[in-house]
Simulated scan of single mutants.
Amino acid sequence: MTDVASTVTLARTALYAGLLAGALDISAAIITNLQVPARVVLQSVAGGWLGPAAYRGGWPTAWLGLASHFALMLVIAVIFIAAAAAFPALRRFWFPVGVAFGVAVWLAMTFLVVPMSASTLTPPADLMTALKPVAVHILAVGLPIAWVARRMLGAG
């Protein structure tokens, strides 16, 4: 495969993985928070940029949150796809790797990205509170991205 074809394949794989994980993850966030409107869930993502003002911005800040969510998922997918292209074992053992990647993404988002942002969200207070978001990141982020990598790039 030529370098251009390889780059296009990697970019297409990252795009598909990012779109799939982004759709699954934001859907899970909305479904697991049915006590608030979907707009508020999306505004909480925009809160990373705008802080509490995100909740006063109506649908424009919700759309900012949705766009930000998908942009971040694309970055997360690019990181995994680049690693999976360099290390075929990540594709060969996609299931346990996907589980580990989902946990790693949750840890990075919870303890690095969100605290460094303007968001007012706080990390879970205990293990039981953390289980649901960790499970969501495994099922909606780590496993789908790893599966797309194996499916589109081969088992290695």
Rank of each mutant, 00 (worst) to 15 (best):
M1K: 12
A5K: 12
S6D: 13
S6G: 13
T7D: 13
V8P: 07
V8D: 10
A11I: 11
R12Q: 12
A14V: 09
L15S: 09
L15T: 14
L15I: 10
L15V: 14
L15K: 04
Y16R: 11
A17T: 04
G18V: 05
L20K: 07
L20V: 15
A21N: 06
G22V: 04
A23T: 14
D25K: 05
D25L: 12
D25W: 09
S27C: 13
A28F: 12
A29V: 03
I30H: 03
I31R: 12
T32K: 10
N33K: 02
L34I: 03
Q35T: 11
Q35K: 10
V36I: 12
V41Y: 00
V41G: 00
L42G: 02
S44C: 00
V45E: 02
V45K: 01
A46M: 01
A46Y: 02
G47K: 05
G47T: 07
G48H: 05
W49I: 15
W49A: 15
L50S: 06
L50Q: 08
L50R: 10
G51N: 11
P52C: 00
P52R: 11
A53C: 06
Y55W: 07
R56H: 14
R56T: 13
G57N: 10
G57V: 11
G58Q: 13
G58Y: 12
G58T: 07
P60M: 12
A62T: 07
L66F: 14
A67M: 08
S68A: 15
H69Q: 07
F70A: 06
F70E: 04
A71S: 15
A71R: 07
A71W: 09
L72K: 06
L72V: 14
L74C: 08
L74I: 05
L74K: 05
V75D: 05
V75Y: 07
I76K: 07
I76L: 13
A77C: 06
A77D: 04
V78Y: 04
V78G: 04
V78T: 08
I79R: 10
F80S: 03
F80P: 02
A82Y: 09
A84D: 03
A84H: 04
A85C: 01
F87C: 04
R91Q: 03
R92C: 00
F93W: 15
F93H: 14
F95R: 04
P96T: 05
V97P: 01
V97F: 02
V97T: 06
V97L: 01
V99Q: 01
V99D: 02
A100Q: 01
V103H: 05
V105P: 02
W106T: 01
A108S: 12
M109S: 03
M109Q: 05
T110S: 05
L112N: 01
V113F: 13
V114Y: 06
P115S: 05
M116A: 15
S117I: 08
A118K: 14
S119N: 11
T120R: 06
L121D: 11
L121I: 09
L121E: 13
T122P: 01
T122R: 15
P123N: 08
P124Y: 03
P124D: 02
A125P: 02
D126G: 08
L127M: 13
T129N: 11
T129C: 00
A130P: 12
A130T: 12
P133S: 10
L139M: 14
A140L: 09
V141F: 09
V141I: 15
L143C: 06
P144H: 06
I145Q: 04
W147E: 00
W147R: 06
A149N: 03
R150V: 00
A155D: 08
A155F: 00
G156Q: 01
G156A: 02
